[in-house]
Write a protein that binds this DNA or RNA. Structure first.
Lengths: 229, 229
DNA sequence: AGATACAAGATTGGATACAATCCCGAGCGC
DNA sequence: GCGCTCGGGATTGTATCCAATCTTGTATCT
């Protein structure tokens, strides 16, 4: 597979969702995507279905595929799962981290710091995600990275929906990496969970509690408003 | 979606793999499956791709789809992941178990006991899986059940490959359920991890260490055999 | 005026036809 | 006899075509 068409389309759509070029609830019309990539609908369909499996888009039969719009409950599920998986992953990494891996993680933190310094929020978020993902990859169990990749994509969408844009977790990451370096798995795990809890804590679920999730919800609210008048 | 064709095909293939009617490394020829279901290749392709995402089959481009044949390393990854996920799930269940849920789990244990008593190994294994899956569903976080369903299917294949056929975990399950009933989350978690470790321990990785993993390996062995003659 | 029935447009879902790729064996040259 | 090349058969991958379904706009009836 020299350079796979489907993979290319997959990455492009996923990236567009992550970068918020494709906002939640936006419809992904197969033919439009197909034309813009110069292929037929078939591979696009495959990619969309794959994204649906990862819960990044929602398919409504005979209606279309829409960028997912996670509810507050779903968002909390994602973060809980991340805590479970990443805590276990970081425990593993404490046992196995090599010097080369440490340097790479250190490099990512530097990148993150730099991106944050020059105000590149999108870049900072991406690098942050890469840090977590790389950590999971270093855990020596492919499932950690497989599942985390899915959860990370959803995290991006969730942060776009409910998040403040300022991130201040650079310190957290350094502390985690230090603990790993010291082989202190209990502390590393604790820091990781705390870090993810903080990240979840920066989200504003209150205000967006009744953010329109589906069109039906929008109509429901409309009716209530006019009934009250 | 009254009764979805694709879901039906998906369940059938998955069930066949679980029941070992489709053994590891067997090729899933799209047209054959399509004909036996009276549909075209299109929905079959979708199902096969989905199974590939779940690592239950492996797709080799322009060659075909084959029932997965997990290596020893992959098998250990699956069990490690199950420990992480199910430990967390059972912790949650300790906080939220209702009477109705308890009765259902109790009923599953009775079914398991009965199936084991009449020597229905396949049925016992299935019910055992249902117990674990139901537990995950009761955890209140859909990701536990989503991921566990995937890991369970792979567990079936792994046990078919490396497993002794006798299972003796009925007691384990009852102890776990008791601990949950007592709201003793630490104990329940410990028992669950121990149970999964025991299950992994019954597998015989040594003997099957060099079991053929891919078709290429099979062919390689064939050649060696004929070369030896 | 409001509601309902119907038709047109748009989009997806599935079937079919064709192209691309791989495996394998026969034939050829050395 | 051995290796290489080329062609046949099988299977997957992609494009295209038609059917099924949903949405929306319009006309008609009350």
């Amino acid at each position: 597979m020299a350079h796979d068409n489907e993979t290319e389309i997959y990455r492009a759509i996923k990236q567009a969702i992550i970068e918020q070029k494709l906002r939640p609830n936006v419809q992904l019309v197969e033919e439009v995507i197909a034309e813009s990539f110069g292929v037929s609908r078939t591979p696009v369909r495959n990619v969309v279905r794959r994204l649906a499996n990862e819960k990044l888009v929602v398919i409504i039969p005979y209606r279309g595929a829409f960028v997912a719009c996670p509810t507050v409950v779903e968002a909390k599920e994602v973060f809980e799962m991340r805590r479970v998986i990443e805590a276990a992953a970081v425990r593993n990494v404490c046992r196995t981290l090599t010097d080369a891996q440490y340097r790479e993680l250190k490099r990512l933190l530097a990148e993150e710091h730099e991106a944050q310094h020059r105000g590149d929020k999108l870049g900072a978020i991406q690098v942050t995600g890469d840090f977590h993902l790389r950590l999971a990859e270093f855990s020596g169990n492919s499932y950690y990275s497989r599942y985390l990749e899915e959860l990370l994509s959803l995290t991006y969408v969730i942060m776009a929906l409910y998040g403040e844009q300022r991130m201040k977790c650079c310190q957290d990451h350094e502390h985690i990496l230090d603990a790993i370096r010291e082989r202190d798995s209990a502390e590393a795990e604790r820091l990781m969970e705390e870090h993810l809890r903080e990240l979840e804590g920066t989200l504003d679920f209150k205000e967006a509690e009744d953010s329109p999730r589906s069109l039906a919800d929008i109509f429901k609210n409309e009716r209530l408003v006019s009934a009250r008048k």
